[in-house]
């Protein structure tokens, strides 16, 4: 076999490849981890709204309604031949990434995406706000806080916590962290952590926030030790968090749709994962007053919701 013959074969193949062209179907397959989950549902609705306005066809698969979701997904991909697969939630992403066959994949609502194995041709909108954004806002609203603490699990949040620590350090805030493996460890972990910190930060860690009991333990311990709680979602305001800066689910859906439009114009570099662009900031004035925290009054008009003591 001469190398010349090999080159001839390669040239022939190349001609074939180029002549085959690059067809780009404009159908999008939405794979939803579980559309009974409110957040997933919200994201899907906003995404569809914008994507359909821009004349895309949409096919949907809800993993929760199929016993053999893997087969369904495979069949749907073959049937619909989507140009892009949009996944909502980690479960949907992990399943879909094996069947993309060189289609583009855009994920959203996956907790701490950095823990996932991100394949080629994959794009994403993160679930968490950029840690630098969270830290900046926290410092703006509560300027006197210098030491914050958080609990997390290595399995789900290690990378996110590392970026929090780094970003906090750059603005002079010290972050004390404690990793736990299961929700049973929360009580002891809090007892060790709370005395060392000025504010406790709840991040979206599925091990720390396993159930209502865990949430209750966090707020009871924080209250006993008179430590304010800062949370990633406004659902914790009612439980007693003083401030919540949450990623806005509607915006995640819209942002994902914009992302798709830009991808089709080749304006997004491969592998881009964006932080959520929209935040909702909620202040619990009742807790703020009770704890006599130093709150920046100029920041009041940046707050989306102010919750008072009246019930």
């Amino acid at each position: 076999m001469k190398i010349r013959n090999f080159c001839k074969v390669l040239i022939l193949l190349t001609v074939f490849w180029i002549s085959a062209g690059f067809a780009q179907p404009s159908k999008i397959l939405i794979v939803n981890s579980d559309n009974s989950v409110y957040r997933y549902q919200t994201i899907a609705t906003e995404f569809k709204k914008i994507i359909q306005q821009n004349a895309y066809q949409v096919a949907e698969l809800n993993l929760n309604s199929h016993a053999d979701a893997e087969t369904e997904l495979k069949q749907l991909i073959q049937q619909e031949n989507p140009g892009l697969i949009y996944t909502i939630g980690t479960k949907a992403y992990l399943l879909a990434r094996d069947y993309t066959h060189n289609r583009k994949l855009l994920f959203s609502a996956a907790i701490n995406w950095r823990r996932l194995d991100i394949a080629e041709g994959t794009y994403g909108v993160a679930n968490e706000l950029a840690s630098a954004q969270e830290i900046s806002l926290l410092r703006y609203f509560l300027p006197s806080i210098k030491t914050i603490g958080l609990l997390y699990s290595d399995k789900f949040s290690r990378e996110y916590v590392e970026s929090i620590k780094k970003d906090a350090l750059s603005v002079g805030i010290n972050v004390v962290t404690k990793a736990i493996n299961e929700d049973k460890e929360i009580g002891d972990a809090l007892n060790g952590l709370l005395p060392k910190i000025e504010l406790f930060w709840i991040i979206s860690d599925p091990v720390v926030l396993s159930n209502k009991e865990s949430v209750k333990t966090i707020f009871q311990s924080a209250q006993q030790q008179k430590k304010p709680v800062y949370a990633y979602s406004d659902v914790y305001i009612e439980q007693g968090a003083v401030l919540a800066v949450s990623a806005d689910s509607d915006t995640i859906g819209r942002q994902s749709a914009s992302f798709v439009l830009m991808m089709d114009k080749d304006k997004v570099s491969e592998g881009t994962v964006q932080s959520p662009a929209g935040s909702t900031i909620t202040l619990n004035k009742c807790v703020l007053d009770a704890l006599r925290l130093n709150f920046n009054k100029d920041a009041l008009d940046s707050i989306n919701k102010v919750v008072g003591c009246e019930k």
Partner: peptide, 21 residues
């Protein structure tokens, strides 16, 4: 130009800073 509607002004400006817009 694709408009991305965000909840607040500050989100819009920060979206530029963090590369979302």
């Amino acid at each position: 130009i694709k408009i991305l509607i965000v909840p607040k002004d500050i989100d819009a400006i920060m979206a530029v800073g963090f590369g979302m817009a």
